[in-house]
Design a protein around this nucleic acid. Structure first.
Lengths: 234, 234
DNA sequence: CAAACTCAAAAGTACTACTTATTCAAGATG
DNA sequence: CATCTTGAATAAGTAGTACTTTTGAGTTTG
């Protein structure tokens, strides 16, 4: 309880740049600053160290590392960045990542998905089309997330699978910020169906191509809307 | 010191499956088992929790999580997997990741690299060609790693940049296991030069295409040699 | 038989004492 | 005068004890 509070406060401060890289914190100061015990302060520092946000040196203190050294794939760090002032930049970074991974994931899903997964993917594709026609954006988002989640899982690559949360974040971020047209484009729907069909038939190249078309479309949309947003995530 | 030892022992045991998911560890047992103090045991558990390898519940203990929940991008976990019995599978997983990311990274490098980076990339491309002609595999590997590292950095996407270590691991793993022809293929060399040229001229599409050709070639090579290696990293 | 109640077990938190490594500076040595 | 050695101060690392809180499981009771 205590632990989480202090961790969130300190982590967010580092993630959004309030504590610039190179800053040294003495663990005694941390105890004082947050009114926490030594135990809590130490374990918080351990966690931050694990995330590579800080490094500890004897006789010196806890040093805030350069952003380039951080473990940017840690869910907590992603959260802190998305909740901070650099949210647009963070979303841009995550979107680039997603656009790189998903075509490849579609490829492997076509090669490795279980029969059951292939079926579910097709079903999700249909539901996507239905909710789009009904202009039910909220339900659409849900099925969209489920679709991409399933695809990443079916790729049987744990490093791809872990990015489900990232994709979900990007998709919700897009609808949440009105970056999404009121009605999803028919083109995108068709492409999702195409991906599902390709995966169902085990056609790797076709699945990859269709998914690439999806992410390129999304990329261009976002680029057009936030053309100035630089991708430095801090 | 103590901390690292215990962490490595426990982490490796979880990473290579000696401790199956669902196993509950009581922190008192850990102290006994490793002859460590309460402090050390607790902080090790905190670190493992941060990596999402375990979760702690009061009145229950420390529970080993499912591999799907782990943070697979943590350098330490990657290390444990590469040093364990599942090394081939881990390398396959990492290679897939790399093949997904690098073409996209090349694209953004072409759009965002500094003039200095563009120059250095070209220089590295030439050195690559020279060491290849000289059949100096060790030097070749060094320049290859530097080339890909620079490219990922120049993409200005921190999540791409973080994968430098992964790419280095994949490239060394390939030469180290004799999966590399004694003389690097002229085709690959030409493609590296092509990437460098495209980045120098800011041609995103061309850079992406050339890099895609590189990773596809590498993928097919590996697939041909270890055609049976399943990609489950645990 | 189900719901509430009690108890105990194990993690979480707090605090104190001691150990070890490292920096910085003073002093010795060439 | 510069460089190397030595040592003291400092802050993190490790150890151990005591207390708190949560929660799972068994037991009682309506």
């Amino acid at each position: 309880m205590r632990h989480e509070q202090v961790l969130d406060a300190l982590g967010a401060a580092i993630a959004n740049g309030s504590l610039v890289p190179g800053t040294v914190l003495r663990s005694e100061d941390l105890q004082e600053r947050f009114g926490a015990s030594r135990t809590v302060a130490r374990e918080v520092v351990r966690v931050l160290e694990t995330m590579r946000l800080t490094s500890s040196k004897r006789r010196v203190g806890v040093i805030v590392r350069e952003p380039a050294e951080w473990n940017h794939y840690d869910p907590r760090l992603i959260r802190w960045q998305l909740d901070g002032p650099a949210r647009p930049a963070a979303l841009a970074t995550l979107n680039e990542l997603r656009s790189a991974i998903e075509p490849c994931a579609a490829r492997y899903a076509a090669l490795r998905a279980t029969p059951e997964e292939r079926g579910r993917l097709g079903a999700l594709g249909e539901r996507l089309a239905r909710t789009a026609r009904a202009r039910d954006l909220s339900a659409f988002l849900g099925f969209d997330i489920a679709f991409h989640d399933l695809l990443l899982t079916a790729s049987r690559n744990p490093m791809f699978g872990q990015l489900s949360a990232v994709v979900a974040e990007v998709l919700t971020g897009r609808t949440g910020h009105g970056l999404m047209p009121p009605e999803p484009q028919p083109e995108a729907i068709a492409l999702h169906a195409e991906v599902a069909a390709a995966v169902a038939d085990g056609e790797a190249e076709r699945a990859e191509r269709a998914m690439r078309d999806i992410v390129v479309q999304a990329r261009d949309e976002i680029a057009a809307l936030v053309s100035e947003a630089a991708p430095e995530v801090e």
